Amino acid sequence: MSIQRIETGARMSQAVVHGSTAYLAGQVAKGASVTEQTSAILAEIDRLLAAVGSDKTKLLSTTIYLSDMSTFAEMNAVWDGWVAAGHTPARATVEAALATPEFKVEIVVVAAI
């Protein structure tokens, strides 16, 4: 079975397709708030899913990393408006130190194609 890599760099690919599954790298975005970062991240996830022939209705699992769990409701307000009703993935949300202090949210998704 072949492996397709999308937007491959020296350290990582933004997406990897194996069989009928797409694995997206953790997505982060600049922005002053969790709301802004989450919105930008979800737009990038939409773009990457489209690039591999998928969309948010085919999400299998999601892991969301927050630099501060007190922003859980703020992130969920954006997430709930984006995720497709009836197509919610298995999901975990955890607090973690992210790559740099400017990042407040990182989202990783796995989707079917």
Rank of each mutant, 00 (worst) to 15 (best):
M1A: 14
M1R: 12
S2W: 13
I3D: 09
I6N: 10
E7K: 11
T8W: 03
A10I: 06
M12C: 13
S13A: 15
V16L: 15
V17W: 03
V17M: 12
G19L: 05
S20Y: 09
S20D: 14
A22W: 05
Y23F: 14
V28Y: 00
A29E: 11
K30A: 14
V34I: 08
V34T: 00
E36I: 15
Q37A: 00
Q37W: 01
T38S: 13
A40K: 04
A40R: 15
D46E: 12
L49K: 05
V52C: 06
T57Y: 11
T57K: 12
K58E: 06
K58W: 05
K58T: 14
L60A: 09
S61K: 10
S61M: 10
T62S: 12
T62V: 12
S70D: 11
S70C: 10
T71C: 07
A73D: 11
M75A: 04
W79P: 03
D80C: 00
G81A: 06
W82M: 05
V83K: 12
A84S: 10
A85I: 08
A85S: 01
G86M: 00
T88I: 06
A92N: 05
A92G: 03
T93Q: 11
V94A: 13
A96M: 14
A97M: 03
T100H: 08
F103S: 02
K104F: 11
E106D: 15
E106C: 14
V108N: 07
A112L: 12
